[in-house]
């Protein structure tokens, strides 16, 4: 009997390779489901899910909500901007109030690292981390790895480079864990000021020249510069950043090789990636978005399967 080794999805760090394989196999089936004329299955018709977003999100929130609805779950949405959080309510109180309305599963995005972990230790519901500050964004890493595996067949021995604002990126950390679990070699590339000092302890290589990094890579994940998380200036100007670390058609022509391009979105066209590259055939950005729904369906399905309703537990 195959099941996940965890009861919450807090980060990739807690997962094992078998968990990833199970999630990917299940996601493969859900990908077929969301391409049917009727894209809905009744599995979670007795489950209520709260999407609690304490930080802005478009893609992730929509993707989670669609995944939940495709599984027939009841969905309630919460965004911090219009809530009692502004009136001084604590996170645990907010979540417990929502759980008192008989919610089974909570998807949470929060600006503070560890918020999902904190909640999972204090409330009785299954927690899915949809991004906690600069820490982890597990579902994004899962969909990135799934999309890459679709293109490359296997990630064993493949070299994947993550470029950009590693310091402020939760996508980067989750990606490193997920790709390494699948046997890929990960390298980081960006201005030294945006690469955290602990990076080398993660078993990755660090390269500050983009072309050198890309020469030996099979795929590249272009991250956005997260101005909203920057309290000081980390590089002289956006123009200089774009010149050094932006992926352009010219650079791709010089490389003259098959290189798969990922981007977790939202794209800052003309900064980390030009429009021509983002819209080129090498970029699998929209595949990532499609796979995102399938991956989230798989994660919710597998976690909900372990989280039995009370009458089933006593049976």
């Amino acid at each position: 009997m195959r099941k996940l080794s965890v009861h919450h999805l807090l980060g990739i760090k807690a997962l094992q390779e078998e968990d990833l394989q199970l999630i990917f196999e299940t996601a493969q089936q859900f990908k077929e489901v969301i391409n049917r004329p009727i894209k809905k299955v009744p599995s979670l018709r007795d489950v209520t899910i709260a999407n609690m977003f304490f930080e802005n999100s478009t893609r992730t929130k929509l993707s989670f909500e669609l995944a939940e609805k495709r599984l027939s779950a009841d969905v309630v949405n919460f965004s911090a901007a219009q809530s009692s959080v502004k009136k001084g309510e604590t996170l645990v109180d907010t979540v417990n109030n929502i759980l008192a309305m008989k919610v089974d599963l909570v998807v949470i995005r929060h600006p503070h690292p560890g918020a999902a972990q904190f909640l999972s230790e204090r409330v009785s519901a299954c927690i899915i981390n949809a991004g906690d500050g600069t820490h982890e964004h597990p579902t994004q890493a899962l969909l990135d790895a799934f999309s890459l595996e679709e293109k490359l067949g296997t990630l064993q021995g493949k070299k994947i480079t993550i470029v950009g604002d590693i310091r402020h990126s939760r996508v980067a950390l989750s990606n490193i864990f997920a790709l390494q679990l699948m046997g890929a070699e990960v390298s980081l590339c960006g201005p030294p000021s945006l690469i955290p000092k602990y990076a080398t302890t993660l078993g990755v290589t660090v390269e500050t020249d983009l072309m050198t990094a890309l020469k030996s890579s099979d795929a590249v994940n272009m991250l956005r510069v997260q101005h909203e998380r920057m309290d000081v200036s980390y590089f002289p100007s956006t123009r200089e950043y774009a010149l050094q670390y932006g992926l352009t058609l010219d650079k791709l022509e010089v490389l003259n090789k098959e290189l798969i391009i990922l981007h977790p979105g939202p794209i800052n066209r003309g900064v980390e990636i030009t429009s021509e590259v983002a819209d080129s055939e090498q970029a699998i950005i929209l595949d990532q978005v499609e796979n995102g729904v399938a991956i989230r369906m798989a994660v919710i399905y597998l976690l909900a399967a372990q989280y039995l309703p009370t009458q089933a537990q006593s049976a």
Partner: peptide, 24 residues
Amino acid sequence: LDTTFFRDDFRRTHKILTAQPNEM
């Protein structure tokens, strides 16, 4: 046709149902 996601015993036992490929 795989019927896993349409089964009525999902979350009723500790047995987790894993799906097989659909070829439709």
